[in-house]
């Protein structure tokens, strides 16, 4: 039963990676990164590294906010 769950989260991470690669708008790229993060974090949790999962979950939004600050100047 566990391998089906791992396969489902792997497919979610792959969907996020491909949509980040294929879309051109910066907002859609950041949404793709969010999907990819949601697929990757359960892999860290399954092995029991919960502190690493907390650090990833707190660092990724801060990175997104910095990327938004950088990309807004070029857009508008």
């Amino acid at each position: 039963m566990m391998e089906y769950i791992i396969a489902i989260f792997g497919i979610i991470a792959l969907i996020g990676a491909f949509t980040t690669y294929l879309r051109t708008s910066p907002f859609d790229k950041l949404i793709g990164v969010a999907i990819m993060t949601g697929g990757v974090i359960p892999f860290v949790v399954i092995k029991g590294y919960l502190d690493v999962a907390i650090v990833i979950a707190l660092v990724v939004p801060v990175t997104t906010i910095f990327m938004l600050q950088a990309s807004r100047r070029g857009m508008r």
Binding site: F27, L30, I31, A34, T37, G38, I41, V45, L50, A53, I54, A57, L58, V60, P61, T64, I65, L68
Partner: peptide, 19 residues
Amino acid sequence: ALFAAAAYFVGSTLESNAI
């Protein structure tokens, strides 16, 4: 794991809010 779930949820909500 409860703290991990709460950290992930608040972080992703903040991300959606910023976007």
